[in-house]
């Protein structure tokens, strides 16, 4: 009996100890309120700035869609001096260069990530991972320069009339999208629980079967997100592309040699012509109109990528 009261007293003391920290929160003063306000403000300002950017884009670019008939907007002639604003060549240019970049960068990026995450011995991983980070740090203009000096002559050697082609742009862009694709896919592979690999190996699966049939499907959403973000990176890139794609606002002929013709992307058009237009002119607002198109495209890509991340989180029961 004595033991029991002793026990009860001890429990009571413990409970009292646990209860005490709560009272500290009651004494929160003005500094707490101020800090909370600051955090709230900075959070809201980010959202406000995004909204303002979009509003600004729409205000400046809206005449494009109001003053120019849609049929002309989607025609193949981009001659701003003659008042012809067909966006089609620029859309096709962006599409060809980006598609080429994706076709090159995605397989290369995914296999590199698989090698880094699943196959490479630790010492190689320690060398290669920082190298990938360095790759991400190379300024795009430097890559454009390299493309101009070294890549273009090689491509011209393939039989193209000029070395500055969609393919040259694709290669440079692929190189630029690679670091994002590699590091995000590697994270996705890393997030696959070791238990899955153990389970597959313990049944007698080989390492490759384990990767192909268990690890990759389990990381599917993360890998898709890596690809999406890589695409986003590629489609928004400007300077390097402007340097190496030849800047010809024509719709290239459909065919196998399509990548070997010069093109001009939407981003390059804005960058090249913005300095020459009169503010407030139709040409000026068409350039902003192109900006709106780009904004919508990248926003859609980010939205899809975000959905994919969301579904990963849901499937793991709320944990990333």
């Amino acid at each position: 009996m004595a033991n029991l009261t002793e026990f009860a007293r001890e429990r009571y003391a413990q409970a009292a100890l646990r209860a005490r920290p709560a009272s500290i929160w009651l004494r929160r003063g003005w500094s707490e309120t101020l800090i909370e306000l600051l955090i709230r403000l900075s959070g809201l300002s980010t959202i406000a700035i995004v909204g303002l950017i979009f509003l600004f884009l729409v205000r400046e670019g809206l005449p494009t869609f109001l003053d120019i008939p849609l049929r002309q907007l989607f025609s193949g002639r981009w001659y701003p001096i003659e008042g012809l604003y067909g966006l089609w060549p620029l859309l096709v240019g962006s599409l060809v260069v980006t598609a080429g970049a994706i076709i090159i960068a995605v397989p290369l990026g995914l296999t590199t990530a698989i090698y880094l995450g699943e196959i490479a011995p630790p010492w190689q991983r320690e060398i290669l991972k920082p190298l990938v980070e360095v790759l991400a740090g190379i300024p795009s203009i430097v890559l454009g320069f390299l493309g101009w000096v070294t890549l273009a002559p090689i491509i011209q050697g393939l039989g193209a009339p000029t070395g500055l082609t969609a393919l040259t742009g694709s290669l440079i862009l692929a190189y630029m999208a690679l670091p994002a694709i590699i590091s995000i896919s590697e994270d996705a592979l890393y997030a696959v629980p070791k238990e899955y690999r153990d389970g597959a190996l313990a049944i007698g699966a080989t390492q490759w079967q384990t990767i192909w049939r268990v690890v990759l499907p389990a990381a599917r959403s993360g890998l898709a997100m890596a690809v999406m973000l890589g695409i986003g990176r590629a489609i928004g890139e400007t300077m390097a592309v402007m340097m190496v794609t030849g800047n010809a606002a024509f719709v290239p002929d459909l065919g196998l040699d399509m990548p070997l013709s010069p093109v001009r992307t939407m981003t390059a058009t804005i960058a090249a012509e913005m300095g020459e237009v009169a503010q407030g002119s139709l040409h000026y607002s068409v350039l902003f109109g192109i900006g709106i198109v780009l904004f919508v495209v990248t926003f859609t890509i980010n939205l899809i990528a975000g959905r994919l991340v969301g579904s990963v989180v849901r499937r793991r029961g709320g944990q990333l």
């Binding site: 238990e195 899955y196 153990d198 389970g199 597959a200 313990a202 499907p217 389990a218």
Partner: peptide, 10 residues
Amino acid sequence: MVFQRPNPFP
């Protein structure tokens, strides 16, 4: 082999 934590594949 059967492991400590159930590890069915997703």
